[in-house]
Design a protein around this nucleic acid. Structure first.
Lengths: 188, 188
DNA sequence: CGAGGCCTTGACCGCGGTCAATGCCCGTGG
DNA sequence: CCACGGGCATTGACCGCGGTCAAGGCCTCG
């Protein structure tokens, strides 16, 4: 997983000037206030959102309850994946948890850039591979760890999440109720 | 999801003869007997296995118990994803559930082919995107459906699984015990 | 006919969910 | 400056889904 991040960073550093400047040209930087929604459910995800500052989350609604699927920090990329890839309405919301600065890359511009510069396809592949591995690990955790273990695992791997984010979001991210999370924390 | 499969098929049909013949050259067809293991845990996954005939499954061990993560039918591709991408030892096994014929594609040959033919990178991307969406959906199902609903969902989406595969494999694929699956089936 | 693999059924239990009350912190306005 | 209200977290009582353990049924194949 981490070695994949290295690959991605190296790849970006070794990109030709031309490709690099194209990416810059088709990206726009925007700021969002805490609580603001970048992408609504049923909207088609036109952008990938690269976090420059702040924290985002992705979530969807199930029986009216918000289920958080991912937290995004600096240098992470937020995107409603299937909506973006298939250019169809999104199940997920993307929301700013804190005031945030984001560099957004337009789908169609990026598609065009990829068709002209095959290096960008490789970059896209590396990033998609990373996301797939992240998903595989998340599935594995749900199948092999109980609620307490998942919390401890999060605590040791991403302590920044626990400190900066409301427990209700964290609970749904861990697949448990807010009350259960509270009890787990009380025991430790 | 299905539209992504269409994209992939179209893309393969529109591949140049050259790319096509390269893929053929670096693939080898093999047959495996029921129960035979194509990839062991801790072995590095050197191949992608494209199923031409038969059924494969992927699984890993947790406390000595087998957890099945995926069933692969004709035209599906079996690969221990993170092991293949990072070329590191695999957590998962890949095993033939029935006598099977498989076309296997070597990692290093494919990497080389991709570096010479950027069309193949695009193909790799499309397939990886499909896998990521499949994983996203699987995660969603675990979070939104209970055991009975997951079984019914499987029954309506992939009835072939229920008919041809031992219930013990299906139970672990659904994330439940064999006994619970049996009780669910009794109620219907 | 007997053995072993696979599935079913029963009894019991614990993890984590739900509902509801209470606590705590903080911003706002009187 | 205090009082109040709202948002967020904690705690308690209760319950049900699905797990575990163990026994029993049912094929298939030697």
């Amino acid at each position: 997983m981490k070695s994949q991040l290295q690959k991605i960073n190296e790849f970006i550093n070794n990109l030709g000037r031309e490709e690099y400047s194209i990416l810059e040209k088709i990206s726009t930087t925007k700021t969002y206030k805490k609580g603001e929604v970048l992408l609504h459910q049923n909207e088609t995800c036109r952008f990938t959102y690269s976090v420059e500052k702040g924290i985002l989350r992705k979530f969807y609604l199930n029986d009216g309850k918000e289920i958080t699927t991912e937290f995004l920090f600096e240098d992470d990329i937020a995107v409603s994946f299937d909506s973006y890839v298939l250019q169809k309405p999104s199940r997920e919301f993307i929301q700013a948890i804190t005031d945030s600065t984001v560099s957004q890359l337009d789908y169609h511009s990026f598609q065009e850039a990829k068709s002209l510069h095959s290096e960008l396809v490789k970059l896209d592949l590396l990033i998609t591979e990373y996301y797939a591995m992240w998903l595989e690990n998340r599935l594995l955790e749900f199948h092999t760890l109980n609620a307490t273990q998942r919390y401890l695992h999060l605590l040791s791997n991403q302590p920044e999440i626990i400190q900066q984010i409301p427990l209700s979001y964290i609970a749904s991210y861990l697949g448990i109720s807010l009350e259960t999370l509270s009890r787990i924390r009380a025991k430790i």
